[in-house]
């Protein structure tokens, strides 16, 4: 049975992974290949690397950086940032990316989505859509002009799928860095608008937010950026809590936390002293593949 996915977004600015707040402020996290390596070991299902400045600066995400991230991880890698040509897509795939995310270019020249799908397969194209709320109404949004698009959200998403996008990544820009939970209505609208898998980003701040998204919408994948940094085993701990709620996620890591206890913030609680005492005498061999 196909599992629901938990993906991590690596938001990159000036070569560093950052936490993004309010779709503008950034806090540095560290080198992308190191973040990728940890997230991979913690059992993340996919990485989504987005260069936040590329479009605005009129350049494309660095192929060299993508190669470093791909070499440090062993997990599907989607890459986006200023892409507008087939040759750039080709270079990224050769560097180790599996899919590319197109955002601005899909609006400026929709045929590019079709061209990438024809040449590299539709599984290779993820159409990324920024979304905001205007007077409470969900609207696709242009991050360069900082203005909503004229088209209705569901129509826009259906158009992108019809052009050949194999997956859609919808990002709630109004919740960027909020940590208050996903925009569930956005997830439901997007997932029911199209047949292709929908990835949702924006708003995660607690391990329960990710299973909540997957339970209450048809989204294929919960994506979180800021939330996965600065907490050891963040992905594994999130998956343990999702699995406990009955969400079908993949739990393949050596550490599973299936018998762990969590506090109200979803953080691991210390085990009882007698359990820790017993563990002192347990030898856990490191797996050599």
């Amino acid at each position: 049975m196909l599992k629901r996915r938990i993906a991590a977004a690596l938001l990159v600015s000036r070569g560093l992974v950052v936490q993004s707040l309010g779709f503008g402020r950034r806090l540095p996290v560290g080198r992308p290949e190191i973040a990728a390596e940890f997230l991979d070991r913690w059992g993340v299902d996919e990485l989504v690397l987005l260069d936040l400045d590329a479009s605005r600066e009129g350049r494309q995400v660095s192929v060299e950086l993508v190669a470093r991230v791909a070499a440090a991880s062993n997990v599907p890698l989607a890459v986006g940032g200023g892409l507008d040509s087939l040759s750039q897509v080709d270079a990224l795939l050769r560097a180790g990316a599996d899919k590319v995310c197109v955002n601005r270019a899909a609006r400026a020249r929709p045929a590019l989505v079709t061209e990438i799908a024809r040449r590299f397969g539709d599984q290779c194209v993820v159409a990324a859509v920024d979304v905001t709320r205007v007077d409470g109404v969900l609207r696709p949004w242009c991050h360069l002009e900082r203005a909503p698009l004229e088209v209705a959200l569901d129509v826009h998403l259906r158009d992108l799928a019809a052009l050949g996008a194999g997956e859609l990544l919808v990002q709630a820009t109004h919740l960027d860095g909020a940590g208050t939970g996903y925009d569930l209505e956005l997830a439901r609208v997007a997932a029911s608008a199209v047949d292709v898998p929908v990835l949702v980003l924006g708003g995660a701040g607690h391990p329960s937010h990710l299973p909540e998204l997957l339970e209450q919408s048809g989204a294929a994948c919960a994506v979180a950026g800021n939330f996965f940094h600065f907490a050891e085993h963040s992905v594994t701990v999130t998956k343990a809590q999702a699995a406990r709620r009955g969400v079908a996620v993949r739990v393949d890591t050596a550490a599973r936390y299936d018998d762990a206890r969590f506090d109200d913030d979803g953080r691991l609680l210390k085990r009882d002293d007698d359990v820790l005492d017993a563990m002192l005498h347990t030898r856990i061999p490191r797996e050599v593949i």
Partner: peptide, 11 residues
């Protein structure tokens, strides 16, 4: 209810 492509982790 199940779309194509078949994408993700399956056992």
């Amino acid at each position: 209810g199940l779309g194509v492509p078949h994408v993700g982790w399956n056992d």
